[in-house]
């Protein structure tokens, strides 16, 4: 990642589903960007902070960084699709290869405002790896 202007993700072509490569200068930023990217795909944009947002603390565990990424995004997906709440800000409090803790400020989202259905975050070709000066992840969503 060269500078802060670098896009936080790019699409990769996948015949039936939707693949993205995500970037972050550290693991915290990578996981934050991953969730914000998924919300952008689903909602067209990150929800605006309006009214009195609720604060939610969540803790997600995984067997390694790749599993952690799938589980983390799965949590955000469930909140948005099933609970009708989406984060407008995400602060990653800590992340290790097996545990992530985050604080979300959330607002309600009308399910009809979801423009792209993501059925699930898949394990297909899942990858989280350190590059020279940044972290990258590859995630394929079932859409």
């Amino acid at each position: 990642m060269k500078d802060t202007a670098t896009p936080r993700f790019r699409f990769i072509d996948h015949t039936s589903d939707l693949g993205v490569v995500l970037y972050g200068k550290n693991l915290e930023e990578l996981f934050q960007n991953a969730a914000l990217t998924m919300l952008t795909i689903m909602l067209g944009d990150i929800p605006e902070l309006t009214g009195e947002p609720a604060t939610i603390n969540i803790s997600v565990s995984g067997t390694d960084l790749s599993d952690l990424m799938v589980c983390w995004l799965g949590e955000i997906l469930f909140l948005s699709e099933a609970e009708g709440i989406a984060p407008c800000t995400i602060e990653i409090k800590s992340v290790s290869p097996t545990l992530l803790e985050a604080e979300l400020r959330t607002v309600s989202v009308d399910p009809s405002s979801i423009i792209r259905e993501i059925k699930a975050v898949t394990y297909h070709e899942i990858k989280v790896e350190k590059r020279d000066d940044h972290w990258e992840a590859k995630v394929v969503f079932d859409v």
Partner: peptide
């Protein structure tokens, strides 16, 4: 179920070509 099985399979079949 996939999440549960992915965790187990990673241990039992480490050569699995794709976690999915």
């Amino acid at each position: 179920f996939l999440k549960q099985m992915a965790k187990q399979t990673a241990k039992n079949i480490p050569e699995l070509p794709d976690r999915q």
